[in-house]
Amino acid sequence: MTTTSAPAGSAGATPTAGSPSRKVREDRKPGLGLTIWRYTLRTLLVLVFALPLLFMLVSSLKPDTQIFGDIGSFAAFLPVGDISLDNYTAVFDRVPFWRFMGNSIVISVFTVGLGILVNSMCAYALARLRFKGRALILGIIVATLIVPFETLALPLLWWVNLLPFYDGSIGWMDTYEVQIIPFIANAFSIFLFYQYFDSIPRELDEAARVDGAGRFRIYWKIVLPLAGPAIATVAILTFLPAWNQYLWPLMVVQSEELRPVMVGIDYFKQLNTSWGQIMSYASLITIPVLALFVCFQRAFVSSIASSGVKG
């Protein structure tokens, strides 16, 4: 009785030590030195970004004397010594924290929501419609990215002070609108949406038009739902500057009832400066930013990888 061996390369054949498939797998495996180097680099990056946050959180639990006493040693990053929540209690006694927090939430939510709508519509027109000057308009929009806000602050202040308001008065000073409307349109958000919309197959638009859909319906029902990662990225990148606004509210808002959280830091620099209270205040206003990023980090990374780095 004779047995027939499986031919080389067949599905049932087991790769031997010298077979090409095993060599390919072995070549693809990183060496031990490279693996150690990768994890070491990642650990260093984590420490660079995490240690300042850890120092802020730990210092918010310590009195000022201990904060300065622990600086220069590893104890600055450890919750040791005189630990308490007194700094957090003092924050709520010193400033109207919930009023500032509510103002920042209102400003940020409206800026993000309206920004996604306006910037995505502009990007859709540039990416899907064909008209003369389209490339020039896109180039001008992208060119505005190099202009810092500080150079526009004074001209913008002059303009908003001359605009008519709803009640017939002149000037938008000391309102929510002056903190929201100038920041709805954003060049980087338009460019990011443009890159993402341009990667969506145009055959979807053509099929929808055959079914009788108009331009806005195609944008609202087809293109925008497919741009989830881009929307998440724009939401994060719009929320951060809206939440961190300091210079502009300081220029246009006088009443305490309309001030955002960043302006509230100035309250702790008056008279006696308490660094423990400043750290507590900073910890409280950082929580919403971290929560937003944790919720949208997967979509954020996906959008940057798929559209944000395209030429």
Score class of each variant (00 low, 15 high):
residue 251 M to Y: 01
residue 111 T to K: 10
residue 83 I to S: 10
residue 56 M to F: 10
residue 151 T to S: 11
residue 129 L to G: 02
residue 159 W to N: 08
residue 86 D to M: 11
residue 202 R to N: 12
residue 197 F to M: 14
residue 259 R to Q: 14
residue 122 C to W: 02
residue 247 L to Y: 12
residue 240 L to F: 11
residue 310 K to I: 15
residue 294 V to F: 15
residue 304 I to F: 12
residue 101 M to S: 00
residue 259 R to M: 14
residue 229 P to Q: 07
residue 230 A to I: 03
residue 207 A to W: 05
residue 5 S to D: 15
residue 14 T to S: 11
residue 76 A to I: 12
residue 128 R to C: 09
residue 309 V to H: 06
residue 299 A to L: 15
residue 5 S to K: 12
residue 213 A to K: 06
residue 269 K to V: 11
residue 300 F to Q: 07
residue 176 Y to A: 00
residue 103 N to W: 02
residue 217 R to Q: 11
residue 156 L to H: 01
residue 223 V to Q: 04
residue 34 L to D: 13
residue 118 V to G: 10
residue 213 A to T: 02
residue 19 S to M: 07
residue 15 P to D: 11
residue 81 G to F: 06
residue 176 Y to K: 05
residue 85 L to Y: 13
residue 225 P to R: 07
residue 179 Q to L: 06
residue 41 L to I: 08
residue 65 T to V: 09
residue 288 P to M: 03
residue 84 S to K: 06
residue 256 E to D: 15
residue 86 D to C: 04
residue 48 V to G: 07
residue 100 F to W: 12
residue 130 R to L: 06
residue 188 F to I: 14
residue 8 A to H: 07
residue 245 Q to E: 06
residue 120 S to E: 12
residue 66 Q to I: 11
residue 93 D to E: 15
residue 88 Y to Q: 13
residue 33 G to C: 01
residue 181 I to E: 02
residue 300 F to T: 05
residue 87 N to W: 03
residue 102 G to M: 01
residue 134 R to F: 05
residue 141 I to N: 05
residue 1 M to R: 10
residue 263 V to N: 02
residue 155 P to M: 00
residue 211 D to W: 04
residue 207 A to F: 03
residue 226 L to F: 10
residue 21 S to N: 01
residue 88 Y to T: 07
residue 138 L to Y: 14
residue 132 K to W: 15
residue 110 F to Q: 05
residue 287 I to W: 08
residue 255 S to Q: 14
residue 282 A to H: 02
residue 92 F to T: 11
residue 129 L to K: 08
residue 289 V to E: 00
residue 62 K to I: 01
residue 268 F to G: 02
residue 244 N to Y: 03
residue 167 D to W: 07
residue 13 A to W: 11
residue 22 R to E: 09
residue 27 D to A: 15
residue 239 F to Q: 05
residue 4 T to V: 13
residue 163 L to F: 05
residue 288 P to N: 04
residue 70 D to P: 04
residue 230 A to H: 00
residue 304 I to P: 11
residue 68 F to E: 09
residue 93 D to C: 06
